[in-house]
């Protein structure tokens, strides 16, 4: 199971679900968490499922490469960090 951490900036707005989730890609891991809180999805992804312009996701210490489909592969011990970008104000 991948371990997911969210920025505290997001915790202000949504009570966050459990931190561990199954999935072969970043999109699948996040989808498992969004299923626990439908509104959380819109904080991280836009209407089209793309990563929001001013949100960054680090996968095992590196920014993900695919911000459109979030297809970066996830390992069972991966760590995913969802952060706000400073560019967002």
């Amino acid at each position: 199971m991948a371990y997911v951490r969210f920025t505290s900036h997001l915790v202000r707005h949504r009570p966050l679900p459990g931190a561990e989730a199954e999935g072969a890609t970043v999109a699948q891991v996040l989808a498992a968490l969004f299923s626990q809180d439908d509104l959380l999805r819109g904080y991280v992804l836009d209407d089209q499922g793309r990563l929001r312009k001013h949100v960054n996701i680090y996968l095992d210490g590196r920014l993900i490469l695919d911000r459109v489909r979030l297809s970066d592969p996830v390992m069972p011990q991966s760590e995913i960090y969802v952060l706000q970008a400073l560019s967002g104000g």
């Binding site: 509104l39 819109g42 904080y43 089209q48 929001r52 706000q84 967002g88």
Partner: peptide
Amino acid sequence: HGHFGCKLHRSDDRGTSWRELKTPAFA
């Protein structure tokens, strides 16, 4: 929100409490 997109909230008790709603979205 600067980072997390636009949101919509509703109050049924004149602003004492609020509940977040689904935001209008494109298909």
